[in-house]
Design a protein around this nucleic acid. Structure first.
Lengths: 339, 339
DNA sequence: CTTGACTTCCAAAACGTTTTGGTATATGAT
DNA sequence: ATCATATACCAAAACGTTTTGGAAGTCAAG
């Protein structure tokens, strides 16, 4: 018992054309007719068949989002906040959000191709860009609109929002240095992730500008999980001359590093300083609370989404490339170097 | 230059009907023709227009999921793991996932109604059921298929997967009692959440069966966040006769409670025992590591999704109601009562 | 030779919209 | 009386599929 335009037409005695136009508020329908049609429509409980609309017009009012998930224990607070930002913004602007979750790799690209080929979505939001990002290439090749959270290397440019990881990490490194630390380790994300590059570089720049040589033994890589933070920190603490501060490149790894230090009865913030990046809500309530860089993930999600929808609606973007300065949040996990 | 059936028909010299049938592997097309059509189709790079298909057939091959998000700082590892489970399963079975994020309340129900009215999705996955769940009523009223993660009170039954929170919390309470604890507090979720009821009841049952009276001063409510765990634990620790153990009803609140205890220089696992529920990946790498109940969220997501798709395809479910027994994971945050 | 069954194919209708290309009537200017 | 313009409407086409209801041809049985 689905109500269609035809039913309204029959009921009002008007043609389907007129009904359609009345509902879409065209000029060439008298206001009396419009009123009539609208009343009957709401009386019958009419809702347009979205697939008929989409078949006719050639767009879908849907944006695509493919989350790169790593294995079954994918559990990153980072993503849920970002998703909320994107999702709420999309809903507010009347767009649907088609979400897929795939591990990076072939399956992921296949998922993109399927959405592109089938023209299932009008455009994409890309998250966590990679250095040489197959997804970017895939979408650019197909000339599909997208906005990314993160930058990438490549031939062509694309609109993005990104946090200025270089600036942020430099700020943070300076902070640690100002506390007296000289042996500072960094646990950075896998280098294929674009933001890993900036954050690591910022760290190195911070050292360099203070005249501290970088010690490769103090540079570790972790897969952004608490587990990896824990394990890499263990390795660092086992060094003959261990660091007095560890800058983890995200909060989750920082938590892991904190656990590793605490397992050895080090007091974090006194015996050793540990810092993160992202300022996920948990950072405020860990013990000790975490010194980190704030990244407004919810807002970033909303921004990226809004930019994409602007693009889809043919508007020009005021700014195609947005770089946000993360804010240093000093809490208890970083403290003066014990003399 | 989108390739349609018409193009293939023209190219092969067959009719559109035959082409459609060849591609759908109907019997009444000769194998020679099938072969020809299929070759031409892949040569031209044909992909069916999904909206035309959906208009014609009356289903969408899409399932809906509306995440209840609480404010901008929505950041729950619980959800990302669940999403991954649902998303990957849906993709594997050839279904799209339409995700919306809305705070519980009017907007949320409106989102459901919009999806239902517009027949945008074939069915729903419902997560985090509430005692009297407007979403359940909305969907049952519209006779829309759905499978829930969680139970709910109501007139009619529905298929669900749920963890046996009552059993789990009883197990955990017993564990704490066996360690010598008698003054045990519980930080439970807001009572409108259905699982809050079971977990709290399990806690009470555990006390009762050991002959320990429940002290209402030791029952606190928190909104599942680390922050709330922190604050409720502070209140508990300020009591004239504070608890020696705190059972938080999820891991996030347990982490918050741990921070609160540690802020007072209590050693968690020695001076006080603190436990969680969910066993999110972080639980293993907190300091101390968290005693908790394991809930296989990824698998639950996958199960719920699979059940729904079964339903949509008209199959009977072997089991309409699945109750999983959570497993007690004893780690360092719970220890013998200090005498 | 006729009949019926089977195989292989096709034209047209249907799904529910929006858009195209009109028509009919009224109004006012010439 | 004629023309131009504006207003209010509509039939039919289009979007790209699947399904309906045949039709033509072949073959074997009667």
């Amino acid at each position: 018992m689905v109500v269609t335009l035809k039913d309204i037409a029959k009921e009002t005695g008007k043609s389907i054309t007129t009904v359609s136009r009345a509902l879409n508020d065209y000029d060439e329908v008298s206001s009396a007719t419009k009123e009539l049609v609208r009343n009957v429509a709401s009386e019958l409980g009419y809702t347009p068949n979205i697939f008929a609309q989409r078949l006719q017009k050639q767009y879908t009012d849907t944006i695509g989002l493919i989350f790169p998930t790593f294995g079954p224990r994918f559990s990153d607070p980072f993503f849920s906040e970002l998703l909320a930002g994107i999702g709420n913004q999309a809903a507010d602007l009347g767009y649907d959000l088609l979400v897929s979750t795939r591990a990076p790799g072939d399956e992921e690209i296949k998922a993109y191709r399927a959405m592109v080929q089938g023209r299932r979505v009008d455009g994409f939001v890309l998250v966590r860009t990679r250095r040489k990002d197959a997804r970017v290439e895939c979408l650019q090749e197909a000339d599909y609109p997208f906005v990314a959270f993160g930058r990438a290397k490549g031939r062509y440019e694309f609109p993005y929002v990104d946090e200025d990881g270089l600036y942020g990490m430099r700020l943070l490194t300076r902070h640690l240095i100002s506390l007296g630390h000289r042996r500072i380790a960094c646990i950075s994300p896998p280098p294929e992730l674009m933001f890993a590059h900036y954050r690591l570089q910022g760290f190195k720049d911070g050292l360099t500008e203070a005249g501290i040589p970088t010690d490769d033994a103090l540079l570790r890589v972790g897969n952004l999980t608490q587990r990896d933070g824990y394990e890499q920190a263990k390795i660092l603490l086992d060094l003959p001359s261990p660091p007095t501060a560890i800058a983890a490149c995200n909060d989750l790894m920082a938590f892991g590093a904190m656990s590793a230090a605490q397992d050895r009865d080090l007091v974090v913030g006194k015996d050793i300083s540990i810092t993160g990046f992202d300022n996920i809500p948990m950072a405020e309530y860990s013990h000790p609370s975490l010194t980190t860089l704030h990244q407004p993930l919810y807002q970033i999600g909303a921004m990226v989404c809004k930019m994409l929808i602007r693009l889809l609606q043919g508007e020009e973007l005021d700014e195609k490339k947005i770089l946000l300065k993360p804010e240093l949040i000093v809490r208890q996990s970083s403290g003066l170097l014990k003399s």
